[in-house]
């Protein structure tokens, strides 16, 4: 029979091993990308356009395209997430309706990214005839990041004590005024954090935008909404297909390193935004 102390010891060791393994996998992944990718990084690589289908030159258009698509997606998703969250938090009082709304959000969050890509392809490219368009890609990414932003915002709104609402109502404020003056300012940290996490996820996505918004080569700075752009994930995919060419492989590592750096940048921004925007009462 195992003693209580031994059980405690085994449990602690198992959890420690799980944590260690997770950290090791992440460290190995990041280590490989940093070690190999850092060798490719130079000012020319970051600020020059690519040549020879990406195997030569830099990734300036890919960085620009990725940032353009995800930042536009963020701008589209922000008001939608805010509106949906306010409605869920302040207007839906029926518990069954709240659960249904939450279920829809979780469901949307669980949809594989390729499905979003196919949805965009069928609706925008085939039915609406938009052709390849970076803006359509941004719309699809906005839909994709919506549940993350909504869930973070709703969670922040739930964290606001009921007395805040009651005190506002008792002063004769309407529900709309209470939402605008009390609820939204105090839950902004949730929205910003959710959006930035959504952006961090979206910037690395290939599948949703591959068929509708990106060109594997030849794309530059778009002059209209209806033009494709080059993005980092699709560029890495294209370079991986030329892995036999050492120069292309080197550029793939460099582009991966840059992509990881952008993801880390958004994640760090989310961390600092949360710390900065969190109401004093919740810090």
């Amino acid at each position: 029979m195992i003693s209580r102390a031994a059980k405690e010891h085994i449990f602690a060791a198992a959890t420690r091993a799980a944590l260690g393994l997770s950290v090791c996998i992440l460290a190995f992944l990041l280590g490989a990308i940093i070690v190999r990718g850092a060798q490719a990084i130079s000012l020319d690589f970051l600020f020059m356009p690519s040549r020879d289908f990406g195997s030569r030159g830099g990734i300036s258009y890919q960085i620009f395209g990725s940032l353009l698509i995800v930042l536009t997606a963020g701008l589209i998703a922000a008001p939608l997430a805010l509106g949906a969250s306010v409605y869920r938090s302040e207007y839906i009082k029926n518990t069954a309706a709240q659960r249904l709304f939450d279920l829809a959000l979780y469901g949307l969050n669980g949809v594989p990214s390729i499905i979003f890509g196919l949805f965009g392809l069928i609706l925008f490219v085939n039915i609406f005839g938009t052709g390849l368009s970076w803006f359509v890609g941004a719309v699809i990414l906005a839909i994709m990041m919506l549940p993350t932003a909504c869930m973070a915002t709703i969670s922040a709104m739930r964290g606001i004590d009921t007395p805040y609402r009651e005190n506002a109502y008792a002063l004769g404020l309407t529900r709309e005024q209470t939402a605008l003056r009390i609820i939204i300012p105090q839950s902004l940290h949730g929205l910003v954090t959710g959006l930035l996490i959504g952006l961090a996820r979206a910037i690395g996505e290939t599948a949703p935008i591959m068929f509708i918004a990106t060109a594997f080569s030849g794309a530059g700075v778009p002059s209209s909404l209806a033009e494709p752009v080059a993005t980092l994930p699709t560029h890495i995919l294209a370079l991986a297909q030329q892995a036999a060419d050492p120069a292309a492989l080197q550029n793939a590592w460099g582009a991966s390193f840059t992509l990881i750096a952008l993801v880390a940048m958004f994640s760090l921004a989310a961390f600092f935004a949360r710390a900065r925007l969190l109401p004093l009462s919740q810090r």
Binding site: D161, Y164, N167, Y169, A170, L171, G172, P279, L280, S281
Partner: peptide
């Protein structure tokens, strides 16, 4: 909303806005 403005209310626990 007008009724609430005319019938003011103070609660048990003070709750000031940030």
């Amino acid at each position: 909303t007008k009724l609430r403005a005319r019938i003011g209310m103070v609660f048990q626990k003070p709750c000031v806005f940030p």
